[in-house]
Design a protein around this nucleic acid. Structure first.
Length: 598
RNA sequence: GCGCCCGUAGCUCAGUUGGAUAGAGCAGCGGACUUCUAAUCCGCAGGUCGCAGGUUCGAGCCCUGCCGGGCGUACCA
């Protein structure tokens, strides 16, 4: 009985939640029509509802008839007609017709759009359903900087793509567990700790510039007599649990975390010490990873190392590619750690889905890790493993992004430059703002631009870093979206509108610009779900850009405060308010703030 | 050599499980401000979707082979 009740509630939530998107309504209606026309086997067939490319073809189109005709051995236009004969969309469509080879074009009623936008306006979640029965526990592995190394532009990608995906998954109703897989272990810590010990007591001062500190240690390791030997001994001491060595190691970690946390806070990235599960955390599990692989019959000794040969991977000799889990000297590698971490996430954290946000160069590594997890039965088929690769950041000449002198671009410098450049634009455009306001806006706009530039193109591609383009007020940029929000706030300020008074206001969709905006608003939930599924943040960006663009069009064509009559004025205020909320929520999912003037 | 990724307008990018005439922005040209912020909007122009085959009623998208670029390919991560 209890189970029945819970099931019922989740169904109700789902139907109530997704009802705002015409695409879902049409998919359901067409599915029923197809089942009625061709039998129950076709109830699950996808009617292929899409936005129409051209307004003359209506608002949405169903493209299933052509494919269906082939299967049924009938004329596609006749198939379309049969679907129409059983189709009931009177509530939302004013006209449905067949065109071309068998497209079914749907012209929506503006009254339906108005009613749905009104429903959206009273929905805190803007139509995004929480589907309790589909909610998963999702572990998202992102950021993962290295201790005692400065964060650079490469970490920015993992950090903000992972942060966005975490936010989207959480908003879509999943239980998200963030995991910051800090690089705090490995042979390089020998030289780092040795360098730190030589420097004396004031660790904080010594590693305030982590990049210098690391480079200095590396130089001494390569050049200085005896230093490399001491470093190697220090590694052994660290691995052996020597307390004075561990003390220095912890110092390095603590100091590094301070840097990371500062960057996260400035960037508005939701990562705290609670999310840190560093490499060293898995040390105690590594021997059992190897042992259990052996028990599973997957372990092979090769050239003195313990390896596995996951199916489907070849090396440069075109032979099976080995993945080393234990070196010939007994040490472990990142493959071992990644296997241990995955087991921990699945067994201890109860993950249904594990998402790895890592650069594209590690595709083969994760391919082999995933295959091994499957082969060993550690990741059952019910657990989804997602590798979320991303490309490199390139400079203007399409070479990896570097400083003018060829050095690594520090993340913190990048952030400061974004704030400064945004500040310069704001001072020019809006000189009346107070210093405090300017500074705050510059930070929100600058960091927003920096993040949005990274998120707005398909992550798999390398992207070209360009300050002028990301800070431009035209085109697919964060400032453009933020400005649409500002314009709406400006209307409310000027009209002294209390948005609370807009509750329950009748929405009217009359002008073409109003219809374009209304249609766009209703698509938000579908986009959020699509991103939660595909893990492609740029789709959300594209949507928000289209929404902002639709609002700017509306703004030009449809006076709000000076509308012809009070009902129109109220309706347009309501439309503006839902737009503002959608922009704000959408940007929030991207980890980007809004301001009320800029 | 083998594997993965990328190739769309001069530049930077979109293009939803194959759908109608491939879309934006920038740059170029031409318009709209005693304004709800012109930080915006409207119009014009700009394309052999790397090349060649194939599958299909229909291909930027799927398959095969090439070309070009990037990355990976055993004891780093």
């Amino acid at each position: 009985m209890a189970v029945l009740c819970r099931h019922r509630i989740s169904i109700v939530v789902r139907i109530f939640g997704v009802i705002h998107d015409p695409q879902n309504r049409l998919t359901a209606a067409f599915g029923q029509a197809m089942a009625a026309a061709f039998g129950p086997d076709y109830a699950q067939a996808d009617p292929l509802i899409k936005l129409s490319a051209n307004p003359k073809f209506g608002d949405y189109q169903a493209n299933a008839a052509m494919g269906l005709a082939k299967k049924l051995g009938e004329n596609p236009r006749q198939v379309a007609q049969k679907i129409l004969d059983h189709l009931d969309v009177d509530e939302l469509a004013e006209k449905v017709d067949i065109a071309g080879p068998g497209f079914i074009n749907v012209h929506l009623k503006t009254t339906y759009l108005a009613q749905q936008v009104q429903a959206l306006a009273s929905d805190e979640r803007l139509g995004v359903a929480i589907e309790a029965d589909k909610a998963k526990t999702v572990v998202v592995d992102y950021s993962g900087p290295n201790v005692a190394k400065e964060m650079h532009v490469g970490h920015l990608r993992s950090t903000i793509i992972g942060d966005t995906l975490s936010r989207v998954l959480a908003f879509a109703g999943h239980r998200v567990i963030r995991q910051n897989h800090l690089g705090d272990w490995g042979t390089q810590f020998g030289m780092l700790i040795e360098n730190l010990l030589d420097a004396g007591v004031d660790a904080s001062a010594q590693i305030s510039d982590l990049e210098d500190f690391y480079r200095n240690a590396k130089q001494r390791f390569d050049a200085e007599e005896g230093f490399a030997d001491r470093a190697r001994k220090r590694v052994v001491a660290l691995q052996g649990g020597d307390e004075p060595t561990l003390e220095q190691w912890r110092l390095l970690i603590a100091e590094s975390k301070r840097h990371f946390n500062q960057a996260y806070e400035t960037l508005g990235v939701i990562l705290t010490d609670d999310d840190v599960r560093a490499e060293s955390f898995y040390n105690e599990f590594l021997p059992s990873v190897v042992e259990d692989l052996k028990q599973a019959g997957l372990l092979v000794e090769s050239q003195g190392a313990q390896v596995v040969f996951p199916d489907g991977f070849k090396n440069h000799e075109d032979e099976p590619q080995a993945m080393i889990v234990q070196k010939s000297d007994g040490g472990y590698l990142y493959a071992t750690t990644d296997l241990a971490a995955a087991r921990y996430r699945i067994e201890q954290l109860k993950a249904d889905r594990v998402v790895y946000v890592t650069d594209a160069r590690q595709a083969q590594h994760f391919g082999m890790v995933f295959q091994t997890l499957r082969d060993a039965g550690w990741a059952p088929p019910t657990v989804e493993l997602d590798y979320v690769p991303f490309g490199m950041v390139l400079g203007p000449n399409r070479k990896p992004f570097k400083t003018r002198t060829g050095g690594t671009v520090k993340l913190i410098d990048l952030i400061h430059e974004a704030q400064e450049r945004a500040g310069a634009v704001i001072r020019e455009k809006n000189p009346d703002l107070s210093d405090d306001e300017q500074k705050n806006i510059a930070s929100v706009v600058g960091i927003g631009a920096l993040k949005y530039a990274d998120l707005s193109s398909d992550r798999i591609k390398d992207y070209v870093f360009d300050w002028d383009r990301m800070l431009a007020l035209e085109g697919n940029t964060a400032p453009y979206l933020q400005n649409a929000y500002v314009r709406i706030q400006s209307i409310f300020r000027k009209g002294e509108v209390d948005v609370a008074s807009l509750d329950g206001v009748d929405v009217q969709v009359v002008e073409p610009a109003e219809k374009t905006l209304a249609l766009k608003l209703l698509q938000f939930a579908g986009v959020v779900d699509a991103v939660a599924l595909s893990l492609h943040p740029h789709r959300l960006c594209t949507y928000l850009y289209e929404l902002a663009s639709a609002y700017h069009g509306f703004y030009e064509k449809c006076p709000v405060l000076t509308a012809a009559d009070e009902a129109t004025r109220q309706s347009r205020l309501a439309l503006s308010h839902v737009t503002a909320r959608t922009l704000q929520q959408g940007l929030n999912l991207l980890g980007i703030d809004v301001v009320s003037r800029m």
